[in-house]
Design a protein around this nucleic acid. Sequence first.
RNA 1: GGUCCCAUCGUCUAAUGGUUAGGACACCGGGUUUUCAUCCCGGCAACCGGGGUUCGAAUCCCCGUGGGAUCACCA
Length: 475
Amino acid sequence: MKPARTRFAPSPTGYLHVGGVRTALFAWLLAKQSKGQFILRLEDTDKAREVQGSERHIIDSLHWLGLQWDEGVDIGGPYAPYKQSERLSIYKEWGEKLVAKGRAYADPYTQAEVETFRQQAKDSKQPFLFRNHRPENPPIWDGTQPLRFKSDPKAYTWHDAVMGELSAGEEAIDDFILIKSDGYPTYNFCHIIDDLLMNCTHVIRSQEFVSSIPRFLNLYEALEIERPILATLPVVLGPDGKKKLSKRDGAKDILDYAREGYLPEAMMNFMATLGWNDGTEQEIFSAQELIDTFQLDRVQRGGAKFDEQRLLWMNGMHMRALSIDDVATRAQTFWPPEAASYTDDYKKRILRLVQERLKYFAELPALTSFFFQDLPINPSLWTENKQLKKLNAGELKNLLNLARNTLAECDFSVTCLTNHLNDLLEKTQQKPAVLFSLVRIATTQAPASPALAETLAVLGREVVLRRIDAMLPTL
RNA sequence: GGUCCCAUCGUCUAAUGGUUAGGACACCGGGUUUUCAUCCCGGCAACCGGGGUUCGAAUCCCCGUGGGAUCACCA
C-alpha cells in the first residue's frame, strides 16, 4: 500500500461534532494503515464566521480521541504554514498564474449587481450561472475585486472512492470566486492549492461538497495538475433522521462526551461503524483493528442516523474491557466530592464492583456515593420494595437484628460474609430476595448496589454495623 | 424548483443472481441466591412500490415514490 497523505481541514467556526470528527477519523485511519501522514490544516479564510478559541477546541478534541497528526497548525512540518490565513501570498500567486493563462478574471460587478442577476434568473425559473454574465472586457485585477475562475463548462464523470462513479452535466460548472475582495481565497480555490502543495493523496470530505466537485475538476484542469483521490462521505443525520447533524440543531460537542466520561476508544469505534463495517459480524473494534481493516469502498453511501443508544452500549463494552488500573486512572476526575478523603486503594476496590455496571464515568457518583457517606435513611426503600412490603415492622426489625448479630461475628472478608449470610438464610428460612434486600437497603440506603457480600466487605464492619444500628430504631 | 446522491428490521448494518434474508443496538420474556448491571437463553421486527431482464431478483435495468445534499465574496 502506498503511503497516503491525508488531511483534516476544519474551519475554526466553533466546536467539532460527531459528523465532523468522523471525517477526521477516516482520514487518519487511511494515513495510519498505509504508514503515511495525517495533516491538520486550518481553513481560516472567513474572518466573519471565525469563533475565538476554535483552534484550541479542535486540537483538544482530536487529541482526546487520539487522532494525532504528523504535520499541522500547532506542530509545523515541511509544508508550513498550515493555517490558510498565513498563506495568502501563495494563493495570490496562483491566482495571478490563472489570470496570466486567461483562466481567471476580475469580477467588475458589485454584490448588489450580482444579486440582481441572481434574482432575474430566479424570476425566469432559470438556474443562475455567473458565466452567463461574464464581462467582455474585465478590468485588470488589482486585488480589490473578487477574482473569478473562467470556467470551461463540460460534463464530467469521475470516480469517487466511496460513492463510485459520479457524474454531472456542464450546468454544474460556473465561474466561481477564487479570491474574495478582502484578499482571502475561497475554500473552493485554496484547498486545491494546499492539497497540491502539501502532496495530499486523498481528499476526504463530507457529502455537502459533492455538488462542487465538478467545479474542482474543472479547476484542476485549468491548473494542469493531477487531482488526488476523491472520497465523499455520507452525512451523519440527526437522531430524527431529518437532516444532517449540525450545531444549529443541537449536535453535541465531541468534548461534551469527554466531559461525561465516555471513552475515546468507544467514541472512535462508534464513529467508524456509523456507516462503515468490515463485512464480518464484528461490532467492537480497537483503534488498531480499525486501522487494519478500514476500507473506503466499504463505507455506506447513504447517510446514517446518529444513535446515542448504540454509543452508550458500545461505551459500556469498552469500559468493561479496561484493566482495573486503567479504569482507576480514567475515573479520577469523576468521583463525588465526598470521595476526596478516601485512599486510591479504597476507590479501586469500589471500581472493581462497579466497573461492569458503569456505562460512562459521569454515573460514578450516583453509583458509589454510599461508599463515602451515610445516605439519609429512606423508608420508602423498604415500604415500597415488592419483597419487603409484605413484612410488618416487627418482622423487619427482628430480621435486621438477627442479621446484625450474625454479621458482627464476621471478619468481613467476602467468603466469611457469604458464609454468614447463607447461614442466616437457613436460620431464618427467609428467601434471599427478602433478607438480602433488607441488609442491602440498611447498609446502603440506595435503590441499587453491587453484590451484597462484596459491598459489605468494602464498606467494612464499622460502617455496616453503624448503618444497621441507625436504621433499626426507624422500623 | 434545478442539479447530484441514496433506499434491507424502529436504529446501525450483512447479503455482490439461488439463504428459512444473517448479526448488533433498542424493546419484550426467561435464567444466574436481593436490587441495578453484567453474562446466558429466547422473542419481536425489514428487502419502498410498479414494471421489465432471467429458470431464478433484496441484488441488474426502467419508471414512480420517499429521503438527503447543494444551489454564497461559507466552508
